[in-house]
Amino acid sequence: MRRSHEPVAWSLFGAGGMLLAFIGPGLVLTTALLPWLAADDPQATHAAIGALLAHPLGKLLVLACVALPLFHTLHRIYHGLHDLHLPAPRLPLQLLCYGGATLLSAVTGWWLLQV
């Protein structure tokens, strides 16, 4: 039997799962209410978010809030498709899901550097 590389995916999945459990509902509620919270002074909201994104720690935080949920959700989606007997070989599906999560995370990182 050969060593599986699943630990890489599982670690990221686990970190994302923990993050989503601890701040997922709060984050979703925040963005859901954001247009109304920001209604008085949208520019100030933009500025506040800008301040957050200007700080390296802020960037890191936002990256975590995007990348980890990506790995978490795409890991579940990958296994879910397998559970549903999706008639596709494993490797392309893995490339799609984990490759997709990596790519989207990289793009997010790139955007964050642009701010």
């Binding site: 039997m1 050969r2 060593r3 599986s4 699943e6 630990p7 296994h79 559970d83």
Partner: peptide, 14 residues
Amino acid sequence: MQWLNAGEGVWSCT
């Protein structure tokens, strides 16, 4: 550990 580490080991479990 080798049995746990394998794809047929703990990593088949969801």
